[in-house]
Design a protein around this nucleic acid. Structure first.
Length: 486
RNA sequence: GGUCGGAUGGCCGAGUGGCUAGGCAGAGGUCUGCAAAACCUCCUACAGCGGUUCGAAUCCGCUUCCGACCUCCA
């Protein structure tokens, strides 16, 4: 299988031709959410970005196994041995069992992902469902000499590892300086070096989420789950590993170290990182308290919003920016996206009503070519959208009788929009009109038509204005009156 | 402090050596009973200062400002 897809690889800080290990199969692992609270829009952006990539890879004909985990094991709030695990803390606050918390927010996450029209991953493994695999991996890392036990907790020995491997490959930082800082500040915990991180953590008496292990009762460190689950489902080396940029420095760096220490091979060949969603220029995050919840966005209940925006408006808004750029959130930007999205959807709807002519004076194939070029250039969805607006202009122009297409051109226009708007970008029409409403509106339109024929414009306008208030907009043209939801 | 990434027209955002996206907003026009939608036209920007070049928003250097990561976070 041949493709010209080029992706930006964080490992090399360059765009590289994407060549799967075993075409046509592609293995892609994306770090999923920690389900101890509602996902916010920043999380959603990442998953929408990877949904775009997943959809495009599928569109190109790859057989993709897309693995996205659910983190549901009790990781600590801080990096130290002190403090609660997030689930237990939340469980106490909500007076629930930790696994009730997990269930509640997992369902919430899935609901939101469905609203955003993301395709479900092929496998969605949970950390708690793979404790045995994690323990096995920790054992192997110990056997290979890259980890040590200290009071029932197992730490990864970063200093030792960094002598043989490039620990800072993803971030390009100077390991000597990092280690130097480490020793100065050392002293807390039972670690040898402060860069060392826990693979397995001994449970304190108050910890509810705990499992037996060769080192006593405990729970896995945060990073090991992704290493264990990605290698289980995708092999010790797979094609794409993705996640938010904030995970690169710590989580992904440690994942690479664990996998290398265990399997002696790079876990993934292409590391793809999505950029942050910002509010007033600052990163949206759980801890900063500036996170928008999807629900607040859809209903407009967030204090910073003047009104609500639909899931597809938000998806479209996000796809209008490249996944590696930061994207700033504002009312104005959302409003602009909402109008643009409707324009695109209206054009798609019009497409089914167009009639073919004998001649063609529009060029659809070059638009399609440019869409592929854009997607092949590191999934450049904003450029694809720009091209689709050009197609929308053509569709409207044909509808106005100012341009024409032959049957063949009309078909390629239809497949263009179907492929890119719906399949690749994953957008969908939200104003699914039921037959009943359609019949009702049709009946009212006919009544109004009679009024207009009698030049009774007062009645005609009253009907139009009334419908407008109910969210239905009438549009008069030579061919008759059409309508759409506002 | 270290590492990395930014600064694009009224706003949001692509691009990244010559052809100078796109959406929204704004102006004018066509159409229309009037609207709406649509179409056409206009508004043509790249933080500042130097340098390289026939040519730079795009490359190089400096300056200013902003952000992310280095601590849980997509």
């Amino acid at each position: 299988m041949e493709s010209n897809l080029v992706v930006y690889n964080t490992l090399t800080r360059k765009k590289e031709l994407f060549e799967p290990l075993n075409p046509p199969f592609v293995g892609m692992y994306v770090c999923g959410p920690t389900v101890y609270s509602d996902v916010h829009l920043g999380n959603c952006r990442t998953f929408i970005s990877f949904d775009l990539m997943y959809r495009y890879l599928l569109h190109l004909g790859y057989k993709v196994r897309y693995v996205r985990n659910i983190t549901d094991a009790g990781h600590l709030e801080g990096d130290r041995d002190e403090g609660d695990d997030k689930f237990s803390k939340k469980a106490r606050l909500e007076k629930l069992e930790p696994m009730e918390i997990v269930q509640k927010y997992t369902i919430g996450f899935h609901d939101v992902m469905r609203l955003f029209n993301t395709l479900p991953p092929s496998v969605e493994p949970t950390a708690t469902g793979h404790i045995a695999e994690q323990i096995e991996m920790v054992k192997e890392i110990i056997e290979n000499g890259y980890a040590y036990e200290s009071n029932g907790t197992i730490y990864f020995d970063v200093e030792k590892y960094s002598k043989e491997y490039n620990y800072t490959a993803l971030t390009n930082r100077n390991i000597e300086e990092l280690l130097a800082n480490t020793r100065d500040l050392g002293g807390q915990d039972d670690k040898k070096g402060r860069l060392d991180f826990a693979l397995w953590i001994k449970a304190k008496p108050e910890h509810i989420m705990r499992w037996p292990s060769p080192w006593g009762w405990g729970f896995p460190g945060w990073h090991i789950e992704c290493s264990a689950m990605s290698s289980k489902y995708l092999g010790s080396t797979f094609d794409i590993h993705g996640g938010g940029m904030d995970l690169a420095a710590t989580h992904h760096t440690n994942e690479i170290a664990q996998s290398q220490a265990c399997h002696h091979s790079e876990p993934a060949r292409y590391w793809l990182h999505t950029n942050m969603l910002t509010v007033n220029g600052t990163r949206m995050s759980k801890s900063a308290g500036n996170g928008f919840l999807p629900g607040e966005l859809f209903t407009g209940s967030h204090p910073l919003l003047t009104r609500g925006y639909s899931p597809m408006t938000v998806r479209f808004f996000m796809l209008q920016a490249h996944y590696r750029s930061t994207l700033d959130f504002s009312n104005e930007a959302l409003e602009a996206s909402e109008k643009g999205f409707k324009r695109l959807m209206n054009a798609c709807a019009l497409l089914n009503k167009l009639k073919a002519s004998e001649v063609t004076d529009v060029d659809i194939n070059s638009i399609r070519t440019r869409c592929y070029e854009a997607m092949n250039d590191d999934f450049n969805s904003p450029v694809v959208i720009a091209e689709l607006f050009e197609a929308a202009r053509i569709i409207n122009s044909i509808n106005d009788g100012k341009s024409s297409v032959n049957a063949e051109g009309l078909e390629s226009l239809k497949s263009l929009m179907n492929d890119f708007v719906f399949n690749v970008l994953g957008l969908k029409e939200e104003t699914a009109e039921t037959d009943d409403i359609g019949k009702l509106v049709g009946f009212i339109i006919n009544l109004r038509l009679e009024a207009r024929a009698n030049k009774d414009y007062a009645t005609s306008d009253r009907i139009r204005n009334g419908l407008q208030e109910l969210g239905i907009q009438l549009k008069d043209s030579k061919e008759g009156t059409s309508w759409s939801k506002i």
